[in-house]
Design a protein around this nucleic acid. Sequence first.
DNA 1: AATTCGTGGCT
DNA 2: TAGCCAAGAAT
Length: 374
Amino acid sequence: MSRKPGSAASKPRRGFDRERAQWVASALTPWFLATQRDLSWRRTRDPYAVWVSEVMLQQTRVETVERYWSEFITRFPDVGTLAAAETDEVLAAWSGLGYYRRARLLHQGAKLVVAELGAQLPRDAEGLRRIPGIGAYTAGAIASIAYDQPEPLVDGNVARVLARFEAVATPSEQLATAPWLWDGCAAILREGSPRILGQALMELGATVCTPRAPRCAACPLAEHCRAKAAGVTAEIPAVRERAASPTERWWALALMHDDAVLLVQRGEAGLLARMWCLPLVAIPEASTVPDRTAVAAIVMGKLGSLRPIGAPVVHVFTHRRWEVHVVVASVRSATPLRDPLTPQTWLREHERPAGGLPTLTRKLLARVWAQATV
DNA sequence: AATTCGTGGCT
DNA sequence: TAGCCAAGAAT
């Protein structure tokens, strides 16, 4: 067989032969059935509930999702209820989970399923893939877990497990889309119960074949693991260096009126989209004292003292670090903002807004109420 | 293809 | 402590 130099075919052979896939399936199945964690969403096969769990689990730890999933399912028990809900209700239920766009895409997806699919989730990955918020991984996860279909799913866990098992040093940023991984995963799922094997691959990556300090002594695949045999487990997958996240500095205005503080709803796009927050004013370079002119550009009426309180609240996002200095000022008007279109609400201590309240705002409010009672 | 999007726990 | 990283998707 002739092969063009440099083509994919000239690369070292990768992936699974049938025999190797069979062995993985036979080793993984009893291991998973004996050792799997008791997770809330594993007690249902309702495709909608599985869908919600998979979206919540995107880039989010199992322990965190355990605090949200049951309550969300209770509040929105089926796709119709979710589709009929207001965006702010959904964001309220998602508050603290992060990556809030997931909640909005899930909501959009529910609306699409109700409006166009008769409130029934597609059973195949291709159909699932067309729903907002469902990418290649989530489509495979729903198809395999909820419907027991041999549709491959490659998340960070599966990629790491299979890359190590085959000793393939694919760079981590390419793993999610590497065809040999998807083919290999599909080959394994075909050799047993996709519902069990898909979760087993992830469970192994999450609890045994961990990024650092993998517990190879407890691994059911260790016997035929090529990374272990070659002593290269620690080098797979290859990690890339990431740029340091810049620090941005803000004044957060705690505008007080009758023991209430003003919250504003952020814009529809970008960081913390549509979430409630204190009004923020960017702090110019080298500035240390609240700038009355900058505040007056946002707030109408006479401003009394602008009183900075406490040390700055530091909040770290994925690639941004915020240093937020809370500044308290009393206002006469109940509508103090210059922009009348900015959605606003007054909040007293122990109250919650009707909508999304991100962790950053919780931190800022804690600071406000702490000083208010002094 | 590289960026953008939260949060919390761990080392 | 400061970074690392987790059941990714969209653009």
